[in-house]
Computed example of a mutant assay.
Amino acid sequence: MSVLVAIPARFASTRYPGKPLVELKGASGASKSLIQRSWEAACAVQGVDRVVVATDDDRIRSAAEAFGAEVVMTSSDCANGTERCAEVLDALGGDFDIVVNLQGDAPLTPAWFVEELIAGLRADPMSEVATPVLRCDGRALNGFLDDRKAGRVGGTTAVFTKDNHALYFSKEVIPYTPARYPDTATQTPVFHHVGVYAYRPSALGAYPRWPAGPLEQLEGLEQLRFIEHGHRILCVEVESRGRQFWELNNPEDVARIEAMMAQMGVA
């Protein structure tokens, strides 16, 4: 089965304009843009046939082409990364069995997250979309709670059925947790939704034609459109294997991600 990875990247982010071109310093002191680090993460995934950056901005296109990425220009009308991936699929002729959306703000995404995601979707013919979830340890959960207390969105959480089909995703911390956990806790009831998606082309192609529902509009979470229109999302539980993971959502996250890269030795 052929696999395409598309990395949506837009300059005009509401919370963080110009985010894809923000420089992140690695453990070696080398500085690379967020979009380059996300592209390198995508290129490390095994079993992928093609990797492209999807953008509507010439500044991002120029930067991506300078470090060797293939770029597909998309419309500025795309409401989110999923719509942008749908345009990429259409532009490239749709000749893929699975399309992966590796969002351009998650440079620490381990390759095995995506590999296990692809394997999970292949093994579940009833699901049209798959996305990874990572059980929070105490430190991660407390970071989410601290961010919400400070009025920041620190990440997205997910709840799902016993057979791993999504019930809901939220920028709030769900399920409700009545108390903080010790930072050393290895098990909490909260799952961090990792912002990567694998789609079957039929579902991805249909997505832009569906209107955004009230839940998607309230939460600002594109995957809720699938749920609101009755389509099944498989949540694939992945393991961190000691690796830290964080998305760059706010300017404050730059220092946090750089510290993680330094600790993990990411150049």
Rank of each mutant, 00 (worst) to 15 (best):
S127H: 05
D183M: 00
S76H: 07
V153Q: 11
D146H: 10
T82P: 00
V153C: 10
V53A: 01
V22P: 07
H192K: 02
T156I: 15
V52K: 08
A123S: 12
A158S: 15
G205L: 00
A27F: 11
G104N: 12
Y199Q: 03
V173L: 09
G143T: 05
L108H: 06
V153H: 11
V159K: 14
S170G: 07
T156G: 03
P20R: 08
Y199M: 01
F169R: 08
G154R: 08
N80Y: 06
T82N: 04
H229T: 09
G155V: 07
A262G: 15
M260W: 14
Q103C: 13
I227Q: 05
G220S: 00
G68H: 09
K162I: 13
R256Q: 14
G47I: 09
E228H: 04
R241W: 08
Q36W: 08
F144C: 04
P132L: 09
G195P: 08
G94A: 03
E83Q: 13
Y181D: 08
L248W: 03
T161R: 12
E115V: 09
V52H: 08
P211H: 02
L4Y: 08
Y16N: 08
A185S: 11
A206R: 01
W246N: 13
P125R: 07
A12C: 06
V236F: 06
V159L: 14
D146A: 15
W246S: 12
F96Q: 09
R61T: 10
T184W: 02
M264S: 12
W210K: 04
L221Y: 01
D105Q: 13
T156P: 05
G29E: 03
R180F: 11
D49Q: 13
L89E: 04
C235G: 04
P125A: 13
T14P: 06
A212S: 03
L92P: 03
F226I: 05
V194Y: 00
A79V: 03
T184I: 00
L89D: 06
R135C: 04
E258G: 11
A262D: 15
E40D: 15
H231E: 14
S240R: 10
Q187W: 02
E219N: 00
G213W: 00
M261I: 15
N249K: 13
V53R: 00
R135V: 05
A30F: 13
V48R: 10
T177C: 11
E40L: 15
